[in-house]
Amino acid sequence: MKINEEKKEDIIIASISGEINIDTSPELRKAFDQYTDQGIKKVIIDCQNLAYIDSSGLATLIELLQRLKKENGELKICNLAEKVKSVFEVTKLDKLFDICLNQEQAVERFK
């Protein structure tokens, strides 16, 4: 798993490639810790190159969402590939997360 971070004004865009699984989730959690420690309240997770997510990956994203909400922050997820999207859909987490088509839509929804 690789995380490529980009800052656009007060929004952090984390583009994740590879897999979020039980082995890589701790690394992702570390990155999320930094965002919340730095007081970042707007986070976009770009999943264009995310090939796989399992239940531990979903749990890590839920944890970030809850932490951001606690600080009145927001999380958007975008560019989900079909199979990864199906994991969000069957678990109904597409209702919990704000799923956007692409980065542009995600940025727009922060306004």
Partner: peptide, 11 residues
């Protein structure tokens, strides 16, 4: 929905 666990068997 916000629970951290309990999705394995369901998936």
């Amino acid at each position: 929905l916000t629970k951290q666990s309990g999705r394995g068997v369901f998936l």
